[in-house]
Design a protein around this nucleic acid. Structure first.
Length: 423
RNA sequence: GGAGAGAUGACCGAGUUGGCCGAUGGUGCUCGCCUGCUAAGCGAGUGUGGGGAUAAUACUCCACCGAGGGUUCGAAUCCCUCUCUCUCCGCCA
């Protein structure tokens, strides 16, 4: 969420920046109109309330001295004033609600370093790591490998739950678990993240702070008759750990990692990625979350990206890093790097991690503050997060990159302590 | 699910016969003083949001004592609803 005053005072900048993301400007014109109305009414009602407070004190004085006659006309005046206040307060509440709706639907402003563009085809490649593996045979996609090995079962998963679910067994299930443990150990022991195991169901205020609600309810699974949603990413519960809190500056940056399942309705992607593990309603992810000072958030974004990249480097799998263009940027982010892993079975790069800086966009919604040393006023922290990594997609990347001609799959060296068997 | 207790500022904790209570006090923190060092001590300051004013402070106004309603000229204090926490009983992984 952007600050109301900031929008008011920088309306042209906000229009320009949100237009780059493909947002229409008429909402912002509407904002300015409603905001002006609100300020006008606010002025009147606050004046009335000031009068009421003053008069109440006078009444108190009269009453204490037993002078009820002097108090009576004042009480009458206040009865009338209260009716007017009630009307104005109602108007104000209605206006505020409309303004909230608008402000909640305004995306974060993209950073100046973000390239302009429409969609993912305009993303800019900023880094390549490793090489595409050389195969003496035609590499298969993981769904063929997994089905032939009998470790991925999409038909039975469909029987249990429907489309976009998977059943992993034997080697695949163990590999998934090994990858999760490997990632968590790396991030906690080498990169200094604290491990978190959060709730997988969260309420409306939690979903609102990180930006999933109110705008993207369709992407979420909601528990019927409860105010609970299945988390689409651990970013949601972990960022909300410090909602409505003030953190000591010495504690920053705070770095958390969490391994959780993620649940997404994938509304609007019906024809896409229907085969294999790429796009599932449920998948596992190791998430990295940071709380930082405003001064250091962009440095911390670079380090967050490195922490995520390290996973693929240790697995020795080729990947590239892209900077998302303005049109492809997520709602709450000011800048995002995607790590795209090479999938030889599909002859394509696919997103395996998304690392973003949100500035104070989430912190304002969630009232997450810190107290700068030597200053009276607390300030909003900056929040960041990134996948480190999406485990399901890492699993399929291992399968496709480490496949052998006979259809078996080798185990990356770094996973051997976690997984002592080969197929 | 049943019975009871509670929810106050970064934290702890007063205040519930309604009236200068945005809220005593303590801790923490900031600044200053003092001090061989450390510790202690002394003084001042220290919530959030939204308006006004300002070059910016200072200043000023409104709101906020779990959330939402209500009573009243006036509510942290009274009434109603909800949420959460704790204790006991029941049930259960």
């Amino acid at each position: 969420m952007l600050e109301l005053r900031f929008i008011r005072e920088n309306i042209e900048l906000v229009k320009e920046k949100t237009a780059k993301r493909g947002m229409a400007t008429d909402l912002l014109d509407q904002f300015m109109k409603l905001d002006a109305q609100r300020l006008e009414i606010l002025g009147e009602v606050e004046q009335l309330k000031n009068r009421r407070n003053t008069v109440s004190r006078e009444i108190s004085t009269y009453k204490k001295s037993g002078d009820d006659e002097a108090a009576a006309p004042l009480i009458d005046e206040m009865k009338q004033a209260n009716e007017r206040i009630k009307v104005l307060d109602n108007d104000l509440a209605a206006l505020m609600e409309q303004l909230e709706d608008i402000v909640m639907s305004i995306p974060n402003l993209c950073d100046d370093s973000v390239p302009e563009g429409q969609d993912d085809s305009d993303n800019i490649e900023v880094k390549l790591w490793g090489d595409k593996p050389d195969f003496s045979f035609t590499p298969k996609p993981h769904w063929d490998l997994g089905t032939e090995l009998g470790v991925l079962d999409f038909e039975r998963a469909a029987k249990l739950s429907g489309a976009r679910f998977a059943l992993l067994s034997g080697f695949a299930a163990r590999l998934e678990r090994a990858l999760a443990n490997f990632m968590l150990d790396l991030q906690t022991e080498q990169h200094g993240y604290q491990e978190i195991l959060p709730p997988y169901l969260v309420n409306t205020p939690t979903m609102t702070a990180t930006g999933q609600l109110p705008k993207f309810a369709d992407d979420l699974f909601k528990i019927d008759s409860w105010d609970l949603y299945l988390i689409p990413t651990a970013e949601v519960p972990v960022t909300n750990i410090h909602r409505d809190e003030t953190i000591d500056e010495q504690e920053l940056p705070l770095k958390y990692t969490a391994f959780t399942p993620c649940f997404r309705s994938e509304a609007g992607s019906y024809g896409r990625d229907t085969r294999g593990l790429i796009r599932q309603h449920q998948f596992n992810k190791v998430e990295l979350v940071k709380f930082t000072t405003p001064e250091s958030s962009f440095d911390e974004l670079e380090r967050l990206l490195e922490d995520a990249e390290k996973v693929l480097q240790l697995l020795n799998i080729h990947y590239r890093v892209v900077t998302l263009c303005s049109g492809d940027l997520g709602f709450s982010a000011t800048k995002t790097y995607d790590i795209e892993v090479w999938l030889p079975g599909q002859n394509a790069y696919r997103e395996i991690s998304s690392c973003s800086n949100f500035l104070d966009f989430q912190a304002r919604r969630g009232a997450i503050r810190y107290r700068p040393e030597g200053e009276k006023k607390s300030k909003l922290v900056h929040t960041l997060n990134g996948s480190g990594l999406a485990v399901g997609r890492t699993l399929l990347a291992v399968m496709e990159n480490y496949q052998n001609e006979d259809g078996t799959i080798s185990v990356p060296e770094v996973l051997e302590p976690y997984l002592q068997s080969r197929l």
